[in-house]
Design a protein around this nucleic acid. Structure first.
Lengths: 339, 339
DNA sequence: TTGTACGCGTTATCAT
DNA sequence: ATGATAACGCGTACAA
């Protein structure tokens, strides 16, 4: 039997309400009684029953976390665990807990969200943006990580992916590349469409023709059609000398594919990619990659959430987390041509 | 204002307890009233307040999840997210939720566990084994993933890592290798000491001398001393022709390192490793690697937990999850020597 | 078959 | 400064 406030009251010879006040440092209580009660509480290893507390206060120290619909696979990517770490770090500091949206098979983010809110356990929600991010009105504060499709008045933290895509492309342009391929585009993922936009903009500003057939969608590694598609692209005379890749894993796959064609990185093809993963770092050659700082994304999101939960005063409604470029060996200058 | 059973009671013209019973399919209630109440409940979008429910029932539909002390970094490894997926899958199916032990900086698993239990939110605990796994008696059922140091009467699910280490080594032996290196050993991680034990056993059975200096500890990639150590090992005349690596990332690093020495995989050195990660699959050459099925580990653990929570009857106290070997191109036959 | 009354542990309001 | 009382939403003996 866990000790309750009543047990302490009995032990201290006071009423339960006095104990409650003492534990909450209510000023309207004598100093000696307070310390006495606190001592007893410690002795009896008292911990307030959060359920009871929540029942009356109508709030909990729990924040729900919703992963994209395909959480099953998305968790596999290093990005999400890193976000989770960030979230957990500040949650822990501020004595909050995180309740995961448990997804069986094909639950949408929408369903998961409902489940979580309906459970009544959470007093806030952090959702990792996906194509189907629910912006239906829920009864608790929501912070979304990643730019929501409808960037209306909701709170969110995000990376400026347009700028990132622009920067990546410009980085290549600065090094003499003119024929630049984009791989990993997936219109379902906003991050990739944003980056593509930046890519196009950079090309435009440099007066380079944008080739629609040089935007290779999604994971080509899985299906062979894309692989053939890539083969054709790199067999052509005017093959790309550089690639902007949406993810390190993709880049590694590409590098492997290129080597089967007798092309090597970076001497024949430069690659700049995203997410700065371990595998990219360990890969030979080391991948030049953008660190979009998922950890910090998590930290910012949880901070925003908790601040919001605390004083209800509206701080910033959106936070932009900066990215950084980790330069390694997968990009080199292009001397082969100048147009 | 959320709807409560009182609201429904008023609406249906019955008492709250009748509503409660109807919703719980209590047999002692007329059929027509039951369906009527259920209809109203649905109409009013009623969801029972879990806090109140938990308060009276003294249990919750929440299972706490504890990651190793260094959760911050451990989450980065694909193994843990995969476990989480497995856990989440069955939790979701059975309408349970998962509460994460939020670790700021250097909280031990012990602390995290206490925090979680003290919170009063969880009615069960699943801990991912680490060196400092707490087997202190907590007030809720515990299932640990990975063999606990003191494999006493507690419930756990695990991979037979001794067998896995043995199998890996035998696989190499079968292909003519006699000089086999082991890298990634870390006595803090039970999995690696188990696998090492299997490695030694396989060597012993084949009458091959076990060389203590051929057990390279931990991540050599981080510190240069190990790198030098490896350099010495592979510069020697009797250099290893094969390696058992504790992790794909490690293997990839090793492959890169070897190539700087003019050695290539698998023609000069074969590598068999663990965890069957994406990076290993995309790497060139593809890594032959053991899939220890972290997902299933999670599934089994949560199933065990929930069954235990349900009927209190004691099913199996330990579950072994089989592993499988994914054969790719990083291992080849050794013809260079025969002793 | 259904209603009444009470308790789960805590906090807030109103007395004292 | 402290105690008594009610209430949060729900479940369940007990009574009817």
């Amino acid at each position: 039997m866990k000790t309750t406030i009543k047990d302490i009251a009995r032990e201290a010879g006071v009423s339960p309400s006095t104990v409650s006040r003492a534990l909450h440092n209510n000023p309207r209580i004598s100093e000696d009684v307070r310390i006495k009660i606190k001592r007893i509480a410690k002795e009896m290893d008292f911990h307030p029953n959060q359920m009871a507390r929540s029942l009356v206060s109508r709030t909990s120290r729990i924040v729900g976390i919703v992963f994209p619909g395909n959480a099953e696979q998305s968790l596999g990517h290093p990005f999400y665990p890193a976000v989770l770490q960030g979230l957990g770090h500040v949650a822990g500091e501020r004595k909050y807990h995180m309740l995961l949206a448990t997804g069986s098979d094909a639950v949408t983010a929408e369903e998961a969200t409902s489940k979580l809110v309906e459970s009544g356990y959470v007093s806030g929600l952090i959702v990792l943006a996906a194509e189907d991010s629910p912006e239906e009105d829920v009864s608790v504060p929501v912070v979304v990580i990643g730019r929501p499709p409808n960037a209306k008045e909701c709170y969110y933290v995000d990376t400026d992916n347009i700028k990132a895509g622009y920067t990546a492309t410009q980085y290549l342009l600065d090094r003499g590349h003119r024929r630049i391929l984009l791989i990993g585009y997936d219109k379902q993922y906003i991050v990739t469409v944003d980056r593509r936009r930046g890519y196009e903009r950079a090309l435009l500003e440099s007066g380079i023709e944008f080739r629609r057939d040089w935007v290779v969608p999604s994971q080509f590694i899985q299906n062979n059609t894309d692989s053939d598609l890539l083969g054709a692209i790199f067999k052509a005379d005017d093959r790309p000398t550089a690639v902007v890749s949406m993810d390190d894993a993709l880049s590694i796959g590409l590098a492997g594919f290129l080597s089967t064609m007798g092309l090597s990185v970076p001497s024949d093809v430069s690659i700049i990619s995203f997410n700065n993963t371990e595998s990219g770092r360990y890969h030979t050659p080391g991948l030049t990659s953008f660190d979009v700082d998922p950890y910090r994304l998590g930290v910012s999101a949880m901070t925003l959430m908790l601040d919001r939960l605390k004083d209800k005063i509206d701080g910033p409604t959106a936070i932009e987390v900066p990215f950084s470029l980790i330069e390694r060996e997968s990009v080199t200058y292009n001397h082969s041509l100048d147009s």
